[in-house]
């Protein structure tokens, strides 16, 4: 079993990846890039799963990673559909235009 230290490093990397993704969602205004940062966050979780799986030497980690990746893809598919509609409606993909619903 890989001793705890290496697992910690893996999780720190996953954590950094996760925060970068989150920052990406916060900073970027273009919907496509927001979707990309969402993917980054999901894959960070996937990486964490793999690290956890290897820590315990069980295949669940990697199976979970596969599930994460597939479901991430489903999410992004619908996301891109919505981006298309957004572009057709506002002919730009800037999400800051979407601020009619407030109060």
């Amino acid at each position: 079993m890989i001793d705890a230290v290496i697992i910690d490093h893996a999780f720190i990397l996953a954590g950094i990846l996760f925060c970068l993704g989150l920052a990406g969602v916060l900073v970027r205004r273009n919907l496509v890039f927001v979707l990309i940062s969402l993917e980054v966050m999901l894959n960070a979780a996937g990486l964490a799963f793999i690290a956890a799986g290897s820590a315990w030497g069980q295949p669940e980690g990697q199976i979970m990673f596969l599930a994460v990746v597939t479901l991430g893809a489903a999410e992004v598919a619908v996301g891109l559909g919505l981006t298309l509609l957004l572009f057709r409606r506002f002919n730009s993909v800037d999400i800051d235009q979407l601020n009619q619903l407030k109060g």
Binding site: F11, A14, L38, L42, A52, A55, G79, L82, L98
Partner: peptide, 26 residues
């Protein structure tokens, strides 16, 4: 607008969920 907002926010929360599950699994 509602759709996009729900999609983004839900995506972020799912990733939080996943990361949490990964940590618990670890």
């Amino acid at each position: 607008e509602g759709g996009v907002k729900y999609m983004i926010m839900s995506g972020v929360s799912s990733s939080f969920l996943l990361f949490g599950v990964a940590l618990i699994y670890a």
